[in-house]
Each structure stands twice: as C-alpha cells, then as structure tokens.
Design a protein around this nucleic acid. Sequence first.
DNA 1: CCGCATCCCGGTGGATACTG
DNA 2: CAGTATCCACCGGGATGCGG
Lengths: 112, 112
Amino acid sequence: MDKKDLFGICPYVTSQKVLSGKWSIYLLYLLKDGPVRFNELKRMMPEEITHTTLSRQLKSLEDEGLIVRKEYSQIPPKVEYFLSEIGDKFDKVLIALGEWGDEYIHFLEEKA
Amino acid sequence: MDKKDLFGICPYVTSQKVLSGKWSIYLLYLLKDGPVRFNELKRMMPEEITHTTLSRQLKSLEDEGLIVRKEYSQIPPKVEYFLSEIGDKFDKVLIALGEWGDEYIHFLEEKA
DNA sequence: CCGCATCCCGGTGGATACTG
DNA sequence: CAGTATCCACCGGGATGCGG
C-alpha cells in the first residue's frame, strides 16, 4: 500500500477530507430530508455564517459529488440543493454521528 | 435555541469540531483495537506526517477527552495512547464511516 | 434571489532542531 | 523514545461589494 497518499484508498482518510469543511456535516444533516433553497438553508444555519461562506461550502460539497444544485431559470432566481445518491447514503453516518455527538455533549457537561 | 454557537448543543456541529483535525479520524481508527505506542503509531501513518504534527494531533484528541495518554517512567521512555470511554464509543461512527468511505471511493472511481 | 471576486486574517499543519 | 519550541507557508472562513 502506498503510504504517500491514502486519499482514494483508505476510507477513513478519504472521508476525513470530504468532511473537512467547517459546516459540511451540518449541511448534510439539513439536507437529509429533501431539497432546500439557498436562503432557507441560510436561515437554518447559525447566524455567524455568511452568504459567501455558505455558497462556498455548498460548492465544495457539490464538487465532491455529495449534493446536487438545481437552478430554476426564473425571475427571481431559485436554486435548490439536495443530496446526491452517494450523499444520501451518508445518512447512516449521520445517525451514528448524531448519537455519539449527544453522548459527547453529555460527557462535556459532566466534566465541567 | 441560541443560533450564535451550536457547539455543545447540536451534536453535528459539536462532532464536526472534534473531527476537524486532519488526522483525527484515522487516529481513532488506528487506536480502536487497543493501546499503541507513539512510534508504532507514526509507522502506521502515511509518511508525510511528521513527528511534531502527530504529537499535536494526539494532544488535541487528549484535550478533547477522546484518548488517554499513559506514560511509563522508564528509560527509554515509553508512552501509550488508547481510547477513553467516550472515544471508544466512537466505534459506531467509525464503522458507518468506513462503509460509506468505501462506497464513496467506488463512486469516485466510476466518475473518473 | 443567488453567486462570485477580492481582500484579510487566523488557525493549523509541516520542517527543523533542541531537550529529557 | 517522546515531546516541545519556533518559524513559516498555506488554506479556509469571514467581510464586503458587485453582477446576473
């Protein structure tokens, strides 16, 4: 096995790279139930995230093949995002991650 | 719900933060079967990672409570790392992530 | 309504070298 | 064998503003 670069070889290293965006996991979570428009998404996110950043994060996920961007040619413009096939399969991870995350939050509270 | 900062509230946002380190997931994977020494760990990782970086990543995971560092007072020094209780519970996520990662790699190959 | 071009800034990872 | 101290380069995220 080539130790130089495990991307595309090791599932963990590969996943890590995909999930590196600051909001990627949360976005996948928000999209898991179907198409959402850009501004809806923005409203669902913490206030701190800006327009630009959200746009970039979505573009990354799109480039990586996890989500699909659908543009409606109309005035005013309308764009929807939804999970691709491989993005949809991520739900298993999301479930495990959600459960673990809750336990971890609990752990943090106890420690404090 | 306070939209200002979801860390410690939303399990996804919280998890995201923990997993932000470039090697965190892979390290958790390598440690899942029991204690491993520093240099062993280094040998199991891609060549690119340096001593310093590995040390920092481990420290982060330790600070976050996912792993435990055990030092043996002897010459030469010996240090072992292993999963904490909450770190051990991460195995569910690891499994889901491993499966998805393989599917994703497959997806990437088809696209190419 | 949505995306992009810029600029800026901080964090994080990598390289090197030195301690116990 | 393991860790730490520095320094540096890079990248990603935030802010702002324009364009379609």
